[in-house]
Write a protein that binds this DNA or RNA. Structure first.
Lengths: 117, 117
DNA sequence: GCAGGTACTAGAGAATGTCAAGTAGTGGTC
DNA sequence: GACCACTACTTGACATTCTCTAGTACCTGC
C-alpha cells in the first residue's frame, strides 16, 4: 500500500507478513518495521508491529534474543520457531484459499450501471 | 472458503462481498446469506451478515424495502444506493492494491528450510 | 546536560466479525 | 387451536487485532 490502507483488511494478514519477512531473514523489531514499510506498508507503525510480534512470540511462533548494539539500545532479534514455519505454511495456504474465494465473487461481472438505482 | 475461514481475514472484506452481491442483484437478507454461502463462505451466518448489512445501510450505502411474502414473514430487500456503488468501486480498488502489496511480499522466495529453528 | 535518533513497551480505544438467543410469520399436522 | 418446522429478521455480549498515544531507555554529538 503506497498510501493509507484499510486497517480492517490488514487484520489476519499482518502476522502472516511478519512471519514471512522473518522467514526471509532474522531481524530486530525496529528493522522489521522498516522492512514492512519498505515493502509498501508505509503507515504500519511500531504500535502495530510490536504487539503483533509479541503475540506471535507468545504463541510460540517466534523466539527472540537480545543483542547489545554499539550505536544505541540493545536490539531484540526475532526469528521463526519450527512452529512458526508451520504457521507460515498454513497461513499461506489459508490466505490463498481466502483470496481465491473472494476474487471468485469480486471478479464476477456486474450488470450495467443503473443510474437512479 | 469450503471450510472454516479465519475471521480476521474476513474483516474489511465481508462488506465488500455484500456490496458486490447486491450490485449483481437486489436480494433480501436471508437470500444474501444463502448466496454468500453458495459462493464459498459456508460458515458465514446470519449473525454476521445482518449486522454488516445494517452497518452498510446506516452508512448510506444500502437502502431497503419490505416486501410481504406469501410463504412466510415479510422480506427485507437490500439494494445499493449511489453511495453504495461508489463505495464498491473504491473498495475494489483498495482490495486490489492490498492484495498486490501482500502478494508482493508473500511471493518472495524463502531461503532453504533451516531445520533446527 | 540536552537534543536527536535508535529501539522497545504498553494500555486505551475502535472496528468488525462471531456467537447465541430470541422474535415473528406461514403452512402443515393433529 | 396448538404445536412444529421452516423461513426471515433482530440484537447484544464477546473476541480479536490493529491504531494511537505516550512513555522509557540507550547511544552519540554538541
Amino acid at each position: 500500500m503506497s498510501e493509507t490502507h484499510d486497517p480492517q483488511l490488514l487484520k489476519g494478514v499482518l502476522s502472516l507478513l511478519l512471519l514471512h519477512l522473518l522467514a526471509e531473514r532474522e531481524s530486530y523489531g525496529y528493522e522489521v518495521v522498516q522492512r514492512l514499510q519498505a515493502a509498501g506498508f508505509a503507515d504500519v507503525l511500531e504500535g502495530s508491529v510490536y504487539p503483533a510480534l509479541t503475540r506471535l512470540q507468545r504463541e510460540g511462533r517466534l523466539e527472540t534474543r537480545l543483542v547489545p548494539s554499539a550505536s544505541g539500545p540493545a536490539r531484540k532479534y526475532y526469528r521463526l520457531t519450527t512452529g512458526g514455519h508451520e504457521a507460515l505454511a498454513g497461513g499461506l495456504g489459508a490466505w490463498s484459499r481466502h483470496i481465491a474465494a473472494v476474487d471468485a465473487v469480486l471478479s464476477r461481472p456486474l450488470p450495467p450501471s443503473e443510474n437512479g438505482d
